[in-house]
């Protein structure tokens, strides 16, 4: 278990932080003939924001699904290659639920569970056996604060989470993902249903959060990757075309001209 205090030292060193997730020759197929991702190898380093950009059908979401074994639920989804999380092969872990509890996910469309706002955020801590009101209160307030939702809901924590507006539900989803202090937070186009002002607030939160966790940010907004990501990967038609420091990619320092075309909006 890596404590935040230990992480602080490496957070901003930029160079070669240890690999949090290592992906080797990852291929993903659906059914007998559709290839969503082929032979992707990359490293996601501790305490970085790793951006993934690319047009539709690039394999971005399938990639995220494979990282915490959500493919177990998806019929017909086949995965080959190795994924190491903290140097442990996730195919071989004996407790997949514990693995998932360390990797938080925020899906594109908000999922406010049909529980109260409070219970939405307290769900995961309760599953881990935390039942003391005082302790839960701290966690709920802290997570809602971080997801930039606390001020709007603090007077109605007992309202149903599924009745919030779309943007609020998405922030509730983020708060819930943070509630068990994941080591990795995966965001799949989180800002689709969120207004620009709130998006900016959440982006500020993400910049702070990377002190404590590794963040994988899949986004359709190229500029969002530019603003947030330390390194960025460009996926196209199931291939990982290029991985590089975000600054390099956005200053034209690319190995493949397709990357530059996409970043500058010439296709996709």
């Amino acid at each position: 278990m890596v404590m935040p205090a230990e992480q602080a030292g490496v957070a901003d060193s930029g160079q070669q932080a240890p690999a949090k997730i290592e992906v080797k020759d990852l291929s993903i197929h659906y059914g007998s003939d559709f290839t969503a991702l082929s032979e992707v190898s990359l490293q996601i380093r501790e305490n970085e924001i790793f951006g993934i950009i690319g047009p539709a059908n690039a394999g971005k979401t399938s990639f995220l699904k494979s990282l915490n074994r959500m493919d177990d639920f998806t019929a017909g989804m086949r995965i080959s290659g190795d994924i190491l999380f903290n140097d442990i092969n996730i195919r071989a872990v004996r407790n997949v639920y514990a693995l998932r509890s360390r990797i938080g996910v925020v899906f594109p469309l908000p999922v406010g569970l049909p529980l109260t706002i409070y219970d939405n955020v307290a769900l995961a801590p309760r599953l881990r056996g935390i039942n003391e009101k005082a302790e839960l209160d701290v966690i709920v307030e802290r997570c809602l604060e971080r997801a930039a939702l606390w001020d709007e809901v603090k007077d109605r924590l007992n309202a149903l989470g599924s009745l919030l507006s779309g943007g609020q539900q998405q922030r509730l989803t983020i708060a819930r993902a943070l509630s068990q202090e994941p080591e990795v937070l995966m965001l799949d186009e989180f800002s689709i249903a969120v207004d620009p002002v709130t998006t900016m607030r959440i982006e500020d939160v993400l910049k702070e959060l990377k002190q404590e966790m590794t963040i994988i940010l899949v986004t359709n907004l190229v500029q969002q990757a530019h603003r947030l990501a330390d390194r960025t990967a460009f996926f196209l038609n199931g291939q990982c075309v290029e991985i590089g420091d975000t600054e390099d990619l956005f200053s034209g320092n690319v190995k493949d001209s397709k990357t530059q075309d996409y970043i500058e909006g010439r296709f996709g």
Binding site: M1, M3, P4, F85, N86, I88, V93, R94, N95, Y97, A98, L99, S101, R102, A124, P125, L127, R128, G129, I130, E135, V138, I139, R142, S179, Q180, E181
Partner: peptide, 21 residues
């Protein structure tokens, strides 16, 4: 800081099956 470690401390190791499993 307490809230944080309270949760992390209760997570089972990913290679260890707990009662819930």
């Amino acid at each position: 800081q307490q809230a944080q470690t309270a949760i992390s401390g209760r997570l089972p190791d990913i290679d260890q099956r707990d009662l819930a499993w």
